[in-house]
Amino acid sequence: MSRIQTVFEELKQRKRKALIPFFTAGDPNPQLTVPLLHALVEAGADIIELGVPFSDPMADGPTIQRASERALRHHVGLHHVLDMVAEFRRSNSGTPIVLMGYGNPVEAMGWETFAQRCAEVGVDGVLTVDFPPEEGHEAFAHLEKHGIDPIFLIAPTSTDARVERVAKQARGYVYYVSLKGVTGAGHLDLAAIEQKIPQLRRHIQLPIGIGFGIRDAATALAVAKLCDGVVVGSRIVQEIENSSEQDVVANVSKLVKELRQAVNLA
């Protein structure tokens, strides 16, 4: 059983929902990435989505764009991110790490090399935002060969046929984007999400995580009630942005603890 599967199985037994924080590797600086990863685990993260910096993050709002820019100022590239995961794994063998980013850095490294490195360092899943199943099948075959789960997004605009298509290719969990827009946008429409979930469950046997627009304990709780896991990205990145380098680990930790408590009530 993969680490991602194991986590969801355990949560199911404890009747809990997964908390899945996201932040960008190398933000605010590369030295803080591994400490932040450990702090997230300690604060209650079940799975961590680690952003791979990219020069042109088209699907991201200003908050995560700036995170990428800060990381790129330190020249953090895909191979550094893999090294960071390797370092994290030296003292953590249980928390799944999902790399999230855009396809071009992987294209530049080569999918086979990338997949092999992922397996070596202990990456569990990979979400390449701009590689839909149609274009990515060859790429994803490399991931599967090395036991890495390809994670996919589903959007409010995804038709039944597309949900079915994604479901066939997806492993680990499926990430439902809870609003129309880029990461960090506002106005979460809970009623619309609630309506959509049954359509997703018809085709998707995997756990469903929901993200985009979750800003605080209240929204985290509301969303957790509707699915299997809550992804919190921009709010955490904002905390990183607004903290000094001395305080950043403590501040992020505090925030994630609050989110954890909220999600536990679901």
């Binding site: 396809g103 839909p132 997004l153 959007a155 597309r162």
Partner: peptide, 13 residues
């Protein structure tokens, strides 16, 4: 090809 996030696939269709 079509290398975009799922959020755009509907509009492109």
């Amino acid at each position: 090809g079509i290398y975009v996030a799922e959020t755009l696939m509907g509009a492109l269709d």
